[in-house]
Nucleic acid binder design. Structure first.
Length: 118
RNA sequence: GCAGUUAUGCAGACAAUCGCGUCCUUCUUUAGAGGAUGAGGAAAGUCCGAGCAUCAAGAGAACUGGGUGCCGAUUAACGAUCGGCGGGGGUGACCCUAGGAAUAGUGCAACAGAAAUAAACCGCCAGAAAUGGUAAGGAUGGAAAGGUGGUGUAAGAGACCACCGCUUAGUUAGGGAUAACUAAGGCUCUGUAAACUCCACCUGAUGCAAGGUCAAAAUGGCAAUAGUGCUUGUUCUCUCACGCCAUGAAUGAACCGCUUGAGCUUAUUGGUAACAAUAAGUCUAGAUAGAUGAUUGUCAAAUACAGAACUCGGCUUACAGCAUAACUGGCCAG
RNA sequence: GCUGAUGUGGCUUAGCAGGUAAAGCACUGCCUUGGUAAGGCAGAGAUCACGGGUUCGAGUCCCGUCAUCAGCU
């Protein structure tokens, strides 16, 4: 049953978000790292049957509205392309002025990241 | 048409597909479906002023610290706003202005210059010289002993005169800052208070991460009529209050605070204006890793600065592309 | 969200009641040594974060921006 629900609900819901500061710290310490030019990916195996994603953009990258826009675009890309294939915990960290990128540039880089992980 | 000044407004709209926060309805309770609604002129900086909350409650005095500073009005309040006055800038429309007191006292004014708050280097005049008189001219400086022109004189000097400036007094106008006029003084009185200071007025501190609810029993430590806490800069007077702290106990954004408010829109009236009064209508985000995105089409082009976090009133800073109104300048053409 | 602090040569710091910006390390040249280090002598290097104001004159006083760094669940 749960598997079916998971297949249907590909959208980004609250269930699929990391929220606690503890979890973030844990994943930053223990996770495996993958890089592209503007993004880092941290992955840790989860004990639950769903995946979770957190987004991390530091204040240095841009002003508040730019950071919000980047986060929305990342969420949108992950929702449409259905990127996370395993039930792990992920953090995507933006760096190196990722706020200046287009939607399409972000898309290619994120797809690259997840394929590298495979 | 060109250059400019001031004020005001907009800050994409519509359609389609997928997707997000909150609320409501429904059936069902892991969840789904439908509907409504969903960021700004600065939401920013956190520079001022308020509400609200806590510091157990309150009245007062002294000192200290901080702020404001032409006049009148507006406002819940303000360092804000409006209208004036004085000063400065611009050909002009118009703009800028922390603008009380320098005879209460103290400090500072480098270098240059003879000399910087105090008189004499060169000079001019008299004289044989010693010396005396003088401040017109010279050089320095931000500032040099009222300025310009004349009379006068040995040479000169407010010594005297005219105009201008300054100080004091008076009259008139004005609600006042102040202005105009008259008379006198003959000029004695450098600048700096955004240096200390004086004068007048204002001022407790901390901030929603404030603070409250769930929250009780029980145990341990300290204290015992003195102690603790007192208006969180210090000291004092008076009315006072009470056992205090830790564990229990959960670092949880779980619930409240959290959105109806000095609210918004329109009209009328009063006022030069800021603004106020009255009437009618209206409810318009409430998140908590933090809600608005992606793709396509049409409009000439939609692209700037930028994202609510308890709430209001201002200020400051950022800003693509426009639109509207009033006014100024000179040029060209008629 | 709230509250503070700091910006001075390449680096680390001085500087005050406003009057020509100081030191150490580093750098350049010369001396010393057979050579290097150390040492000695000389030299260069700053729009005092940026923009206004007060003042005759601001690194310093006042106001506003920007950047950096701390602290508070």
């Amino acid at each position: 049953m749960e598997e079916k629900n998971y297949q249907h609900n590909t959208k980004e819901r609250a269930d699929h978000r990391l929220k606690k500061n503890k979890q973030f710290n844990y994943i930053f310490r223990k996770g495996e790292k993958y890089h592209t030019k503007n993004f880092n990916l941290y992955v840790v195996k989860s004990k639950y049957k769903t995946y979770k994603i957190g987004y991390s953009i530091s204040k240095k990258e841009g002003k508040a509205n730019q950071r919000n826009l980047l986060k929305r675009r990342m969420k949108e890309i992950i929702r449409i392309n259905n990127l996370p294939k395993d039930n792990h915990n992920y953090i995507i960290q933006a760096k190196a002025k990722a706020c200046d990128l287009d939607y399409k540039q972000i898309e290619t880089q994120l797809i690259k990241l997840f394929s590298e992980k495979e």
